[in-house]
Structure formats: structure tokens, C-alpha cells
């Protein structure tokens, strides 16, 4: 499979990374090189093999339902690039 410029743009859009027109061609080359490289996985016989999604082979621990966090609004907001009072602020969104 080989990526078209339109696909590069679509991926960039999905990933919310602005890509200038002159960046498309080099990106296309690099991404295609990566895809060509990983294409060798097509040669592995994976019949009947379950996917392994995690690094740990165990079941999940469940935490007790106790309120033990929060009430730290100032710390939560302290690193915000923009805020309006006790809120985070972003450019206006039209739904």
C-alpha cells in the first residue's frame, strides 16, 4: 500500500497536525518508507493467533470507590495557556 498526498493530508487532519503544502511530499516519502518496512509482517503466518494488546498478562485490579482526589482546581489550572476565571479557555466553538 502506498500513501497518496490526499491520504497524508487526511492523516494529518485526523492527528490535528497542520501540514504545509511543501511538507506533503517529503512526509509522503517518509511515511511510505515506514509502511514499506512494516509490510514484511504480511509474511507472518498468524492463523489462529490471538492479538496481544497489553504488556502485562493479568486481569485488572478494581479500586474501592472512595473519593480521595480532586478539590485542587488551582493546581489543575496552573499550567493552562489560557483561562477565564476557574475555567480553561479556548477559541470560541460553534456547535
Amino acid at each position: 500500500m502506498s500513501l497518496e498526498p490526499a491520504t497524508v493530508r487526511r492523516i494529518a487532519k485526523l492527528a490535528r497536525i497542520r501540514v504545509e503544502d511543501d511538507e506533503i511530499a517529503p512526509l509522503q516519502t517518509q511515511l511510505n518508507a515506514m509502511l514499506d518496512y512494516v509490510a514484511q509482517l504480511g509474511g507472518v503466518d498468524i492463523t489462529g493467533v490471538e492479538p496481544l494488546s497489553g504488556g502485562a498478562q493479568m486481569a485488572m485490579r478494581l479500586r474501592e470507590d472512595t473519593m480521595c482526589d480532586g478539590a485542587i482546581a488551582e493546581q489543575i489550572l496552573a499550567n493552562a495557556p489560557d483561562r477565564a476565571g476557574e475555567f480553561f479557555a479556548v477559541p470560541k466553538v460553534i456547535e
Partner: peptide, 8 residues
Amino acid sequence: APNSQVSF
């Protein structure tokens, strides 16, 4: 209050 029930 806004953002008062928020953890990291």
C-alpha cells in the same frame, strides 16, 4: 465550583 472535582 468549576474544575473543583477534577484530578490530574
